[in-house]
């Protein structure tokens, strides 16, 4: 017993060091992109408030740029609204369909208070939280297209896993022929992502547009994701190597919209029940 105490006293610093490092590594390993501790992420009220102050200051320096982006989006939306209000130039039934479908979707506006684009795993912090009925798993879009998926939510803030994080993949399809694939970021350039699972029999051209597939409760269909920048298919490849230029410019992302699908819970429960059934 005495020798044990002597041993402990002698190596107490080393033991403390090893214990603290073990805690750090356990935190690191268990830090799954989805199930994280809300207190230990930047949606934590204290950390997010500091980011909020910083972004309040920074926002003044990019008002002009933000205005330009918002105005461009407004123009696009006004154009779509015009087409929906005057259904003579489209099929009437189709326009009705869009209107009823969209009733199930609620848009929640939010401001980006922190974001990184140059890490190998990036995160975004928003100034919107549970109080604004934001919940984890909701889709986030920017003025130009898909941004990411809400991960952690606190009372007033939320963290988002953007497309620029290999932890998520976005289910998307080619606008021209409806072929689907999963978009994944490779950790390098904030402008590009990859589409690894498109088989060789499918016709892919540079410049093809990718939109969300709508096969999940996260994003409604037909939201812009990106454009094929380069599609390589050598003699022996079974799959294309496709580089996609993302629709969203993450460096200029200041305002986003969170998509709340009214029946998302119902859909998720139904799909979970089916999976359980299959097992």
């Amino acid at each position: 017993m005495k020798t044990l105490l002597q041993f402990l006293a002698r190596y107490s610093i080393v033991l403390l060091f090893v214990a603290l490092e073990t805690v750090a590594i356990v935190l690191l390993v268990r830090n799954n992109a989805y199930q994280r501790n809300a207190l230990l992420s930047s949606s934590n009220a204290a950390a997010a408030s500091i980011y909020s102050v910083g972004s309040n200051i920074r926002d003044y320096f990019r008002l002009r740029q933000t205005n330009d982006i918002l105005q461009a989006e407004n123009t696009r939306l006004r154009d779509r609204l015009n087409r929906m209000e005057n259904p003579t130039d489209t099929a009437g039934a189709c326009a009705m369909n869009i209107l009823t479908a969209d009733r199930n979707i609620v848009f929640i506006p939010a401001r980006v208070i922190n974001l990184t684009t140059d890490r190998q795993r990036n995160y975004i912090t928003l100034n919107c939280g549970r109080r604004d009925s934001v919940d984890s798993g909701m889709g986030v879009i920017g003025p130009d297209g898909v941004v990411g998926i809400v991960s952690m939510v606190s009372e007033h803030f939320a963290t988002v896993i953007p497309v620029l994080n290999p932890g998520i993949s976005i289910n998307c399809k080619f606008k021209k022929n409806g072929e689907i694939g999963a978009l994944r970021w490779d950790g390098r350039d904030y402008r590009f992502a990859e589409l690894p699972d498109i088989a060789r029999h499918i016709d892919v051209q540079e410049g093809d547009t990718l939109v969300t597939s709508g096969y999940s409760a996260v994003f409604p269909p037909e939201l812009p994701v990106g454009v094929v920048e380069k599609a390589v298919l050598t003699e022996n490849d079974a799959y294309y190597r496709i580089r996609v230029r993302l629709a969203t410019n993450f460096r200029r992302l200041h305002y986003v919209t969170i998509i709340r699908q009214r029946h998302a819970d119902e859909l998720t429960t139904l799909e979970a029940a089916r999976k359980k059934d299959e097992r």
Partner: peptide, 17 residues
């Protein structure tokens, strides 16, 4: 730092070392 950077564990391990 990890809380701010959403990188739980990485800064902690490096700083402790």
């Amino acid at each position: 730092m990890d809380i701010f950077c959403d990188s739980l564990g990485a800064h902690t391990a490096a700083c402790t070392l």
